[in-house]
């Protein structure tokens, strides 16, 4: 295997804020959390499920909501010494399953106990509410070990919320935003890395399959039709023929230019499959299948291991290729 340092790497964050629609049962529970209250739902068998779902463990629809808690019992727990970025508390805390008073199932949340020595299975806990509540599981900041002071604080929060809710006609909770950010280190693999590095030198280097002799761009760990590596290096030309194209006439996020512009498949001389790129230097309505085009490279100081080292393609002005030259390519 090639040395690892020849493989390109880059950080990548998969990030999106999902819009969760809750449906009636989850929405009602989150609405109760917003009012500093805890509710469960009664299942067909008569047990009380917290947090409530539209269905019980056997798929049957659940019934009426019912008030639970606010206190409960820890049924199991785990102690986190080094909280992660996405955890609810920034200092050491416990995760716990808490069976709220009046409930038959336990709910997962954090317990802010101060020390692992304060945690034990069977201990009683009460909720600590966020000051600002929006209708999310995180409106419940965490649980805390039950004490007179903690119980009083929870009761006061609930009373204040109840008073506020009385004169308030906030709409029920139906949606909440759910941000997700996952960090990855993307690697290009050795074949793609070699291809991209060559582009930084204004060279286009494909890989030939030893069985079918086709030249692939980029080289591949497996020829898609023969199953053996298609990686014998072959430098191909930076000019070729348009095999097909489309004219983009709508603006969208990743668009490189204002529309209209042409996206083309170019069969480079020496390669057996086209690459996709942009075509400039001709009005979009004049782009043709069979048109001969050449790469326009970026300036030397902008070259890098990326297909963007080719700014776009432009027509060479030579006569079009005959149709049979492109008929078997797209």
């Amino acid at each position: 295997m090639d040395r690892d340092e020849e493989v390109l790497e880059a950080p990548y964050r998969l990030e999106y804020t999902y819009q969760r629609s809750t449906g009636p049962v989850i929405g009602r529970f989150l609405g109760a959390l917003r009012d500093a209250r805890l509710e469960g739902v009664r299942t067909a068998s008569g047990s009380v499920m917290v947090p409530p779902l539209e269905y019980d463990a056997d798929g049957a629809a659940t019934g009426e909501p019912t008030v639970v808690g606010p206190g409960g019992v820890v049924t199991t727990w785990a102690w986190v010494t080094e909280p992660r970025r996405e955890h609810p508390l920034p200092h050491p805390f416990a995760w716990a399953l808490v069976r709220l008073d009046g409930a038959d199932s336990a709910m997962l949340h954090a317990v802010d106990a101060g020390s692992i020595d304060a945690m034990r299975t069977g201990m009683r806990v009460v909720p600590r509410w966020q000051d600002e509540r929006t209708g999310s599981i995180r409106d419940l900041a965490c649980f805390v070990p039950e004490s007179a002071a903690a119980a009083a604080a929870a009761a006061a929060a609930a009373a204040a919320a109840s008073a506020a809710a009385a004169g308030d006609d906030r709409p029920p909770v139906t949606m909440f935003p759910s941000p997700v950010a996952l960090d990855y280190t993307v690697t290009a693999g050795r074949h793609l890395s070699a291809y991209l590095r060559a582009l930084a030198e204004r060279r286009i280097v494909g890989g030939r399959c030893p069985v079918c002799t086709k030249v692939y761009l980029p080289p591949r760990g497996a020829c898609p039709t023969c199953g053996v590596p298609a990686d014998a290096p072959v430098e191909v030309a930076d000019h070729g023929v348009v095999t097909t194209f489309c004219i983009i006439r709508i603006p969208f996020d990743a668009a490189p230019f204002p529309p209209p512009y042409a996206s083309v498949a170019v069969l480079l001389e020496g390669a057996d499959m086209p690459i996709f790129h942009l075509l400039r230097g001709i009005p979009p309505e004049e782009v043709r299948m069979g048109m001969r085009v050449r790469a326009v490279w970026v300036a030397d100081d902008q070259l890098g291991p990326t297909l963007a080292s080719i700014r776009w393609f432009e027509p060479t002005g030579e006569p079009d290729a005959p149709h049979d030259q492109i008929a078997r390519h797209l």
Partner: peptide, 8 residues
């Protein structure tokens, strides 16, 4: 990163 930029 490294995936062809979707230009269309």
């Amino acid at each position: 990163p490294f995936q062809p930029q979707l230009t269309a």
